Computed example of a mutant assay.
Amino acid sequence: MRAAAMMSSLLVFLTAATPATAITPSVRFHHYVALGDSYASGPGIPDQGNEPAGCGRASRNYPGQLANWLRVPDFRDVTCGGATTAHMTAPQRVPGGENPPQFDALRQETDLVTITIGGNDVGFSQIMDACGRAGAADPTGSPCRAHFTASGSDVLAQRVEATGKRVRAVLAGVKERSPNAVVLVVGYLRILPPETGCWPQVPFAAGDNAYFDRVQESLNRTLAEVARSAGARFVTPYTYSLDRDSCQPPERRWVEPLRPAAPAQAVHPNENGMKIVAGLAWLTLRFARTP
């Protein structure tokens, strides 16, 4: 479906008075497992769970909203902030306890899986910190790009390539454990605009905004290619979030800046962003599969 048509359908869907009653689907999915990192778990968004608290798992994250709209009778959300591809099969220590390997939630009868993973493998949080510090010292230059390309090759491009291979292995693991599941690989909302940024709200240097945006675009493109090659479906929030990044006004943005105006962790989706991602996932299921 073309982007304009899909966005039009999405906006109609999300402006319905009561989305859950507007859908009225027959029960198509019985056991839904949500896997992933903080862009799926929703740290800071209401209402935060406590199993463990350090995962930042919100009831109104995109998996929670999607499960509600689909009326899934058995929903398991094991997403956790800071998760990497390694935490699909290994436990993750977080403040307040330990998140078990996320694959532990998968069962033979699981029929729907969503997964948002790869950002922490590339090192987005460390990149944001390092580039923010560099930008504070040189706001008109491109110190971050200079740092990551100083060797003559682009370190972040290499990380994206390596992450794609890891995600391919993750999808093979999902297929092995839940062979009949519909799998949605869900990409990342746009964090920064493609050109001019908003220093000091997000203190990237002027020349580094476009560089970071290209890295994020490359990751989303890689995830899409891996998903398709594995027989999964890709949900692409990045494409639809132009002019909805962390530099936009509070009422417009879907990702918060360093000082959030809405309940959300800095440089993470707010509740509106999660709702959009849930809507895109729902539309992907609706138009890709008949009841």
Score class of each variant (00 low, 15 high):
residue 116 T to I: 06
residue 118 G to H: 01
residue 118 G to V: 05
residue 118 G to E: 01
residue 118 G to I: 04
residue 119 G to I: 02
residue 119 G to S: 08
residue 119 G to D: 04
residue 120 N to G: 05
residue 120 N to L: 05
residue 120 N to Y: 08
residue 121 D to T: 05
residue 121 D to K: 03
residue 121 D to W: 00
residue 122 V to L: 11
residue 123 G to E: 08
residue 124 F to M: 13
residue 124 F to I: 13
residue 125 S to L: 15
residue 126 Q to E: 14
residue 126 Q to L: 13
residue 127 I to Y: 02
residue 127 I to Q: 00
residue 128 M to Q: 13
residue 130 A to F: 03
residue 131 C to L: 10
residue 132 G to V: 06
residue 132 G to Y: 01
residue 132 G to D: 04
residue 134 A to D: 10
residue 134 A to G: 11
residue 135 G to W: 00
residue 135 G to Y: 00
residue 135 G to R: 01
residue 136 A to S: 12
residue 136 A to N: 10
residue 136 A to I: 15
residue 136 A to F: 11
residue 137 A to S: 14
residue 137 A to H: 07
residue 138 D to V: 06
residue 138 D to G: 01
residue 138 D to K: 11
residue 139 P to S: 03
residue 139 P to V: 01
residue 141 G to Y: 05
residue 143 P to E: 08
residue 145 R to N: 13
residue 145 R to G: 13
residue 146 A to M: 11
residue 146 A to E: 14
residue 147 H to N: 12
residue 147 H to G: 08
residue 147 H to D: 12
residue 148 F to D: 04
residue 149 T to W: 07
residue 150 A to N: 09
residue 151 S to L: 08
residue 151 S to F: 08
residue 151 S to A: 14
residue 152 G to W: 09
residue 152 G to T: 07
residue 153 S to I: 13
residue 154 D to L: 10
residue 154 D to F: 11
residue 154 D to R: 11
residue 155 V to F: 13
residue 155 V to W: 08
residue 155 V to R: 14
residue 156 L to Y: 09
residue 156 L to I: 13
residue 160 V to Q: 10
residue 160 V to K: 08
residue 160 V to C: 10
residue 161 E to G: 14
residue 161 E to R: 14
residue 162 A to R: 15
residue 163 T to R: 10
residue 163 T to P: 03
residue 164 G to N: 05
residue 164 G to I: 02
residue 166 R to H: 15
residue 166 R to D: 14
residue 166 R to Q: 15
residue 169 A to T: 14
residue 169 A to Y: 08
residue 169 A to F: 05
residue 170 V to Q: 01
residue 170 V to E: 02
residue 171 L to D: 12
residue 172 A to H: 14
residue 174 V to I: 15
residue 174 V to Q: 02
residue 175 K to R: 15
residue 176 E to S: 14
residue 177 R to W: 02
residue 178 S to C: 02
residue 179 P to S: 12
residue 179 P to Q: 03
residue 180 N to K: 09
residue 180 N to T: 01
residue 181 A to L: 01
residue 181 A to K: 00
residue 181 A to T: 00
residue 181 A to M: 01
residue 182 V to D: 00
residue 183 V to C: 04
residue 183 V to Y: 00
residue 184 L to Q: 07
residue 184 L to Y: 05
residue 185 V to H: 04
residue 185 V to M: 08
residue 186 V to Y: 04
residue 186 V to F: 05
residue 186 V to L: 06
residue 186 V to W: 07
residue 187 G to F: 07
residue 189 L to C: 11
residue 190 R to H: 11
residue 192 L to Y: 09
residue 193 P to H: 02
residue 193 P to D: 04
residue 194 P to I: 06
residue 195 E to G: 03
residue 195 E to N: 10
residue 196 T to E: 13
residue 197 G to F: 00
residue 197 G to Q: 02
residue 197 G to D: 03
residue 197 G to A: 08
residue 198 C to W: 00
residue 199 W to P: 09
residue 200 P to M: 03
residue 200 P to Y: 02
residue 202 V to W: 01
residue 204 F to V: 05
residue 205 A to V: 02
residue 205 A to M: 04
residue 208 D to A: 05
residue 208 D to S: 04
residue 208 D to C: 05
residue 208 D to R: 04
residue 209 N to S: 11
residue 209 N to A: 08
residue 209 N to M: 09
residue 211 Y to E: 04
residue 211 Y to R: 06
residue 212 F to P: 04
residue 212 F to I: 14
residue 213 D to R: 08
residue 214 R to I: 02
residue 214 R to A: 12
residue 214 R to L: 10
residue 215 V to D: 12
residue 215 V to F: 12
